Amino acid sequence: MNLKINSRHLEVTPAMRTHLEAGMAKIRKHFDHVIDASAFLIVDNAKEKELRQSAEITIHLKGKDLFAEAHNADLYHAMDAVVDKLERQVVKHKEKIQDHHHDKRFE
């Protein structure tokens, strides 16, 4: 999987990159058909302190794109939250593409 990380108003440190790659490894464990992923880490001057740090990730699957975003006062918590949201979407997508409708007559 190719992971591209962009940022606005902050510099992506190796620790941030490692943390995000570890989270994406959890997603890859559920579903190995991820073609490409792009992350966007943002620090804004929002009035609410809990909305200042945000993380957005877009995953490109075969025939579908999944997107999630999360806001938090801490960027690492925002990255964890967005990975959790994407993990739920990937599991749901995986269940949809699997054929669970067996023909009962042939069993």
Results as ranks from 00 to 15, higher is better:
residue 51 L to R: 13
residue 53 Q to T: 05
residue 54 S to P: 11
residue 55 A to Y: 03
residue 58 T to H: 15
residue 58 T to G: 15
residue 59 I to E: 00
residue 59 I to C: 11
residue 60 H to L: 13
residue 60 H to V: 11
residue 60 H to E: 11
residue 61 L to K: 03
residue 62 K to L: 12
residue 62 K to Y: 01
residue 65 D to Y: 12
residue 66 L to H: 02
residue 66 L to Y: 01
residue 67 F to K: 14
residue 68 A to L: 06
residue 69 E to A: 15
residue 69 E to Q: 14
residue 70 A to E: 02
residue 73 A to Q: 12
residue 74 D to I: 00
residue 74 D to P: 08
residue 74 D to C: 07
residue 75 L to P: 12
residue 76 Y to M: 08
residue 77 H to R: 12
residue 78 A to H: 04
residue 79 M to V: 00
residue 79 M to H: 03
residue 79 M to A: 04
residue 79 M to G: 05
residue 79 M to E: 00
residue 81 A to S: 14
residue 81 A to H: 07
residue 82 V to M: 03
residue 82 V to A: 04
residue 83 V to A: 00
residue 84 D to A: 13
residue 85 K to A: 09
residue 86 L to S: 01
residue 86 L to C: 09
residue 86 L to W: 00
residue 87 E to D: 15
residue 89 Q to Y: 05
residue 90 V to Q: 04
residue 90 V to I: 00
residue 91 V to N: 09
residue 91 V to F: 05
residue 93 H to C: 02
residue 93 H to V: 01
residue 94 K to R: 02
residue 94 K to A: 01
residue 94 K to P: 10
residue 94 K to L: 01
residue 96 K to F: 08
residue 97 I to L: 12
residue 98 Q to L: 10
residue 98 Q to A: 13
residue 99 D to V: 12
residue 101 H to A: 10
residue 104 K to H: 10
residue 105 R to W: 03
residue 105 R to P: 07
residue 105 R to D: 01
residue 106 F to V: 07
residue 106 F to S: 09
residue 107 E to L: 15
residue 107 E to K: 15
